[in-house]
């Protein structure tokens, strides 16, 4: 299936200037994500477009091939699927997730931001105890999986990252 899919895979646009120079491994990751998305869909898509810089995934399939459940999936949720692929930042404790240091403030990180080990990306609050959520690896934020105030369990994915080249980071 992956070969067939690769034929349909449109290459990501040229990277921004601060993108990792070594695109090979990144492309591999992106392709793996796409393959996984395709597998999750359960049928062959007509087009899968993946862009690494601004992070967007587009899947297109013909109406005839679509199973009844395959209503168009919002892009953001499709992005959430590769949570199991790239690195994820998980909740360090059970509690309530906050993406920003305080209500109304700007979030710690946004999609596309570069994070390094130790970068704070959020807060999990349990009983007025604020536990910082920090990245453990270097990467670029691919998706924020939880909304402000959403309850999370220990180990639940909060962010997905796209691995960044360590030398560049």
């Amino acid at each position: 299936m992956s070969r067939t899919l690769a034929e349909h895979l449109e290459l990501p646009p040229a990277p921004r200037r601060d993108e990792p120079a070594d695109l090979g491994s990144l492309l591999e990751q992106v392709r793996d994500s796409a393959v996984r998305i395709a597998r999750d869909l359960g049928h062959r898509p007509d087009v899968v477009r993946v862009s690494a810089g601004a992070v967007s995934v587009e899947v297109r399939w013909s109406a005839a091939a679509a199973p009844p459940a395959a209503v168009p999936v919002p892009v953001a949720e499709v992005v959430a699927v590769p949570a199991e692929v790239g690195p994820v930042v998980t909740a360090p404790a059970v509690g309530v997730f906050h993406p920003a240091p305080e209500p109304g403030a700007a979030p710690f990180v946004a999609v596309g931001d570069l994070v390094r080990p130790g970068t704070q990306v959020g807060i999990v609050e349990a009983m007025k105890l604020m536990m910082p959520v920090t990245a453990e690896v270097t990467g670029r934020v691919a998706a924020v999986l939880k909304r402000d105030g959403e309850p999370v369990e220990y180990g639940e994915p909060l962010f997905t990252l796209l691995p960044a080249d360590r030398a560049a980071a």
Binding site: A93, V94, A126, M127, L129, E153
Partner: peptide
């Protein structure tokens, strides 16, 4: 069910904020 922490009891079954939060 609520998963309140990792294996070590200190961070799960002995973790008062996690239990009360749950």
């Amino acid at each position: 069910t609520v998963r309140i922490g990792p294996g070590p009891a200190k961070r799960s079954y002995l973790n008062i904020p996690a239990v009360v939060e749950a």
